[in-house]
């Protein structure tokens, strides 16, 4: 904590501009949209990288296209490996999430940048997108009754007539579905926030803290990748549960 009692924070582009513009409406605006600004910077970088990678699209790829294809191919194999061939439909969504979260996580160790994922609003927004898409997939794949049946743990025979059990299961599953975006977003936000705090504290040590800062940066980089993988893996599993359930019903 600093003198004002708030959490320590490293100087970044927005806070620097806010200090320069002191008490002007622009300063307030920048401070209010700080995380969104950094997210938009990342989004623009991603779009530019995507454009550069596929600018000269060829069947025999160049270096940039090759890197992009390797990444996309690997991610697609990973997703279809879990979900089956139908998982290909979700590769763009999960892939975008992966790169977006990874870049936002890593941006915390780049000078004058900030991890937008250290804000719960950012991670919850992403988790809500996942939640809505998963629920949409569940309703479209299983149908309303099929999905309700699944949420009630498919009561058959005696269990179907005992109203309490299906209702209890339904309420439990609804709660678990609602908790998913909260747990998903809080896990990511808390880990990245912790990393940012560590960097902020270590940067306060001055030159003495540089070796530790460098060492922590490596650890933070690893943690950033792990948290991205965890978020995307869980998202993939949420989709896989629905698709596998649907395939089992079909067979």
């Amino acid at each position: 904590m600093n003198e004002s009692g708030s959490a320590p924070e490293i100087l970044n582009l927005v806070t620097y501009l806010e200090r320069v513009l002191k008490d002007t409406p622009w300063a307030k605006f920048l401070l209010l949209w700080e995380n969104v600004i950094f997210s938009l910077i990342i989004a623009v970088i991603m779009i530019l990288l995507g454009f550069l990678a596929l600018r000269k699209r060829k069947l025999i790829p160049g270096r940039a296209q090759n890197a992009a294809e390797s990444f996309v191919g690997g991610l697609d194999d990973f997703i279809t490996g879990i979900m089956g061939p139908r998982g290909r439909r979700y590769t763009p969504f999960i892939g975008t999430l992966f790169i977006y979260i990874l870049f936002m996580n890593i941006s915390g160790i780049i000078p004058f940048m900030k991890s937008s994922t250290s804000s719960w609003s950012t991670t919850l927004a992403l988790a809500l997108c996942v939640f809505v898409y998963v629920q949409y997939t569940a309703f479209s794949e299983l149908g309303f009754l099929g999905y309700m049946d699944r949420l009630m743990e498919k009561p058959r025979g005696f269990l179907a007539f005992s109203v309490i059990y299906p209702l209890l299961m339904l309420s439990l599953h609804i709660i678990s579905e609602l908790v998913k975006p909260i747990s998903l977003s809080l896990r990511l936000r808390s880990n990245i926030w912790g990393d940012d705090m560590l960097l902020a504290v270590l940067s306060g040590f001055g030159l003495k803290g540089v070796p530790l800062l460098l060492f922590s940066s490596v650890l933070i980089l690893i943690a950033a990748v792990i948290q991205t993988v965890v978020f995307c893996l869980l998202t993939t599993i949420y989709f896989a549960f629905i698709l596998i359930e649907h395939e089992e019903e079909a067979t």
Binding site: S39, A43, M46, I47, A53, L54, S121, T122
Partner: peptide, 24 residues
């Protein structure tokens, strides 16, 4: 921020889906 982040992610997703993911 929640709304802005949701909208920015969705815009990013649709742009990348159309110009990056589908072609690649």
């Amino acid at each position: 921020e929640l709304v802005a982040q949701t909208v920015s992610f969705l815009i990013l997703f649709f742009i990348l889906r159309a110009f990056f993911w589908k072609p690649i």
